[in-house]
Design a protein around this nucleic acid. Structure first.
Lengths: 139, 139
DNA sequence: GCAATCTTGTTTCTATACAAATGAATTCAG
DNA sequence: CTGAATTCATTTGTATAGAAACAAGATTGC
């Protein structure tokens, strides 16, 4: 009779992902205390793609509609983004980067790259490339 | 002059980790609606290591003291764990699995293994082993 | 013995994260 | 045109996640 495989928490991919993410968040928070990783992702996406609807911005940053609403609210309160009604479609809210947001991103994007590098630092460059390629197939 | 490397959100390890984790959480929620991944981790750890202090349990499941308090409260409310004061140390709360908790874990641990397998399914067994080994070095 | 230090747990607060329900607005098909 | 379907945003509720402050209890060093 085939013995069932035991469930070993430390071996589960979800548990390992959670611990890696916690370490990454800690590195980010220490290096960039002004905003969170999620907030910075929004700034990055606005920098890359320009003003866009809140709904689209959420989808472009892997956040659901309720989540992006909260993140945009907090960034607006911090003065890093501005929102405006779409003149052509009254359902839409257009989110754009403010000067302060652009300035913060410009000041911090190299630090943010360093955060990613530090997160991956225990691996060689070859291993980092392998990891990224494998993870990309799991999204 | 060396041009600064651009910050491309989709290439950042933190962003990729978040998306992989979201997919994993969705697979888990569909397969095991009774509890969340974090709650199941607690059940798994109690199954592996037996009754233990809430603080130790938190550290054994990668959760801070405030977080494990909430997770244990919700599991207790669901009837899957029980808490009791430690007779030797009045600071401590001992958390143990109830019969219902043990039963749920027994009923669901193979499903949970399948969740991990499904999460990694886009990769070959060799690639899965490589990914796990690389991630393990980032915790 | 007693003060200092450490440990454990709780509370409060802020920040995601997302499901579900709801309402307003737009688009589409007949 | 008009109703149905879809889209966008908000709200509500639940679940982490963790920092910081605080209190109670235990340990340690003098």
């Amino acid at each position: 009779m085939n013995r069932a495989e035991p469930y070993i928490l430390d071996d589960q991919i979800g548990f390992v992902l959670r611990r890696v993410t916690q370490r990454h968040l800690a590195i980010f928070a220490a290096a960039i205390p002004e905003v969170t990783t999620t907030q910075f992702a929004v700034l990055a996406r606005l920098m890359e793609s320009g003003p866009q609807s809140q709904n689209h911005l959420g989808r472009a940053t892997a956040m659901d509609a309720a989540t992006i609403k909260g993140v945009v609210d907090r960034l607006a309160r911090l003065g890093f983004v501005a929102t405006a009604a779409d003149p052509d479609d009254r359902r839409r809210l257009t989110v754009s980067l403010t000067d302060a947001g652009a300035t913060l991103f410009a000041a911090r994007s190299s630090t943010a790259l360093k955060v990613s590098a530090d997160t991956l630092d225990p691996l060689s460059p070859e291993e980092q490339a392998i990891l990224k390629a494998l993870l990309a197939r799991l999204t």
